[in-house]
Design a protein around this nucleic acid. Structure first.
Lengths: 127, 127
DNA sequence: ACCTTTACTGCCTAAAAAGTAAGTACACAC
DNA sequence: GTGTGTACTTACTTTTTAGGCAGTAAAGGT
């Protein structure tokens, strides 16, 4: 799915970092633009592929599938395939995924309180 | 510092996401490979440029400066320049940066407990 | 005159992430 | 036999991120 140059400094650094630091490895596992949004959608229960897609209007099908696959590989999300035609699949958080939700909620609160705006402006809690 | 194509879908999506979701905006603000590591180094007090560099062996000077700049722009980190020759600068967390440390510690614990390995293996808390 | 130290800057390339557009499969309805 | 719905796949391009490496400034040492 990803083609990586295994001996690039880029890749070596990423490996070193993720194997050395539980924070970084966690954040990189749910990094990128879409994964957290997907997890957040699933926090209240399982959803069909199309339901996720409708809930996240801007995501392309390719991106959604790709991110879901990566989330499944890293065991944040499970998929149930009903083997029907037309297809029906349902995605849900694994126990691992669910266990991370309190942290996401903390970040939600923190982010809301501090009005972080990506490349953020100075706000409430500053020097 | 970043040259962005302001009307690319890529950029538009990023803006939409970060303005709409406090979690995503927070995580993207400290995203990338190095920012969290830098913040983590600073959690116990201010450090000189070279001290950070030695603490993070793999980072290049260009990357370190770039990440520090971005962290300053988004008000996670402050810089004190002593205007000496040879130069002396000290970096430290802002109040905002400090206020995020408890969350980082939560993630540290969670990551340690769940042995997340980047593109992770199934571990303790799974279905 | 030349080297060292510290904290940078700039230009270029490599690699990865994100996006675009089209196509696939199968069952059912019309 | 053409069209619809669902959940994908594939090939390709654009955009962004990461890294390589040389260069800069200014004071002080030798």
């Amino acid at each position: 799915m990803k083609k990586r140059k295994l001996n690039s400094t880029n890749h070596i650094n990423e490996k070193a970092i993720t194997s050395g630091c539980p924070i970084t490895s966690t954040v990189l596992a749910i990094g990128g633009r879409w994964k957290i949004i997907i997890l957040w959608q699933l926090k209240d229960g399982s959803l069909r592929y199309n339901e996720i897609r409708k809930a996240i209007p801007n995501i392309s099908e390719k991106m959604l599938i790709q991110q879901l696959k990566e989330l499944m590989q890293s065991c944040w999300v499970d998929k149930k395939d009903y083997n029907e035609i037309p297809p029906r699949t349902e995605y849900s958080l694994t126990k691992l995924g669910k266990s991370f939700m309190p942290i996401l909620e903390n970040i939600y609160e923190w982010g809301t309180k501090n009005k972080i705006t990506a490349i953020g402006q100075k706000t409430a809690a500053n020097n």
